[in-house]
Design a protein around this nucleic acid. Structure first.
Lengths: 201, 201
DNA sequence: TCTCAATAGTGTCAGTGAGACTAGTTTCTA
DNA sequence: TAGAAACTAGTCTCACTGACACTATTGAGA
């Protein structure tokens, strides 16, 4: 009956959706996709969804509404949120908004080992990254203008705005670095390497 | 003997450090901290480090050099990288650089549920986030200028540059949103909420 | 008619993250 | 100088995530 220490994105989303109305797991998954929230929570792995639901149930944050049988599909358990669930969701949300969490995305980690590669290889890799990243940015912006054209208020698109801001920053940084690599503005020598590799024991 | 499908930041870092010289696990951990790489790989949890080392050993990417006994401390197993390890590290690195990975940080997920909160609560939460985030940015910039003053070449600070670019973008976005919230430029009504909540079944 | 996609759920494994626990050693300090 | 704190070095468990595969049924399209 203890509430999980930290609300994961998926757990928060489940609680949030159940505040609109009771749903069965598959319905939650569909709704996440329909509302485009699959950009910010990973619902591709249904295992996680079912496990999350189990945990939330065990913690008393959600409960079983009914078990319906559509005589066509497997049994579907419909869940609803509890009062505790409503309160906890608010707490989690406030916490996740106010306190930045140290996360460890893989790109900066990779960046810190560039010395393993030749300059040419780095350029090629960065070029490829710029390519896929700018495509993704274009897609995102298309979706955003489609949605706003559809009359959706801005408050429902803040997460997309944020993603756009961060992606744009990454792209801009990448482009400036590739420029510097190409122009010879960013070079390093074997001597640098050795100096850096002076390992204190 | 199969190489793990995907190289985690930590696994890559272990391989990278062992290219400079053989090390024991604790030495790896210290080196990560000394070189400031603990900003981009999570080495706080030593469990992961030991497990990663076991996996790399099982995969033949690293091997046991020797087992030394300093008669003071527990036994220390010293590992060294293998030729396969060197090759795999390069592959992983190129892959991680070139192909952006879909990751799911919690902040955008939280953003997508702002409708659960009152405008005032959102403002407060954002203000707190701006506070801690700008402190973190200041710290990072201080470290960067210290390092560059210390004569370290730019190539060794690219990950810090990247982090700074992304953090700055997040801060700028946050500030613009809080401004809009305060100025009344970003509002929403119960009607918006209902329209948004029209759930197709 | 056959295949494919969608519906709905289960299972297994690898890996990460947080934390506690053991146990010896050096260093600071009251 | 005794005791506290911090460092060295490693183990263990638990909770959670992510990837992938498997079972079954149904409806739609080629």
């Amino acid at each position: 009956m203890t509430t999980p220490r930290t609300g994961s994105p998926l757990a928060l989303t489940v609680l949030a959706l159940l505040q609109y109305r009771p749903l069965h797991p598959y319905g939650i998954q569909r709704l996440i996709r329909q509302w485009g929230k699959d950009k910010v929570v990973n619902v591709g792995q249904r295992t996680s969804l079912y496990r999350t639901i189990d945990r939330l149930t065990a913690a008393g944050l959600i409960g079983v509404r009914e078990t319906e049988r559509d005589q066509a599909y497997p049994e579907r358990t419909v869940y609803e949120i509890t009062d505790t669930g409503r309160a906890v969701a608010r707490e989690w949300l406030l916490d996740m908004l106010a306190m930045p969490k140290q996360e460890f995305p893989e790109f900066p980690a990779a960046l810190s080992h560039l010395l393993m590669l030749a300059p040419q290889e780095i350029r090629d890799a960065f070029d490829r990254r710029v390519g896929t990243l700018s495509e993704a940015l274009a897609t995102l912006e298309a979706e955003m203008s489609a949605e706003s054209g559809h009359g959706l208020p801005r408050i429902t698109m803040l997460e997309a705005e944020y993603l756009r801001a961060v992606m744009a920053a990454e792209l801009q940084w990448l482009r400036s670095v590739t420029d510097d690599l190409r122009s010879g503005n960013l070079t390093w020598s074997a001597a640098d390497l050795l100096a850096f590799a002076e390992i204190p024991e």
